[in-house]
């Protein structure tokens, strides 16, 4: 079965941002954490809790529904995959995601879509992120 990324144990997070670094390296060949499909941030400053904003692998994705050009296709196991050659850069997917987990790559004017590759989970030093079997939600 296909797996998807789950940020279910963010209570363990130390805020090292390694996940963001790894995602940018692996998927965008870039050092900038703005290129990452996962964003860790604090609610209420450094003294608040860490939260991960990342695609939650919807079965019925609003982003895909909002896409006028068919650039987002359903991914087995949940979520969507981006076909960049079909994307016109309209930002509708970004606005449709109520988790605010669609980010934008200004360099190419296309969305940053998590493909649930699991690289961030592999490098998370505290196992806050994990890859889980679809259907185990």
């Amino acid at each position: 079965m296909a797996k998807y990324l789950s940020a279910s144990e963010m209570n363990k997070c130390i805020g090292c941002f390694t996940c963001m670094n790894i995602c940018s390296i692996v998927n965008k060949q870039n050092h900038s954490n703005t290129k990452s499909a996962i964003k860790v941030r604090t609610r209420g400053g450094m003294t608040g809790r860490f939260v991960a904003i990342v695609c939650i692998a919807c079965d019925d994705p609003a982003c895909m529904e909002a896409c006028p050009s068919g650039a987002l296709v359903k991914r087995e196991g949940g979520g969507v995959l981006l076909k960049p050659e079909l994307c016109i850069g309209c930002h509708r997917c970004e606005k449709a995601c109520i988790m605010q987990a669609v980010f934008w790559d200004d360099d190419i004017n296309k969305p940053i879509i998590c493909r649930h590759c699991g690289s961030c989970a592999k490098f998370c030093p505290h196992k806050c992120l994990e890859m889980v079997e679809a259907g185990e939600k």
Partner: peptide, 9 residues
């Protein structure tokens, strides 16, 4: 917690 970029914390 950790400094940004440190997996040790």
């Amino acid at each position: 917690v950790a400094c940004t970029g440190c997996p040790v914390g």
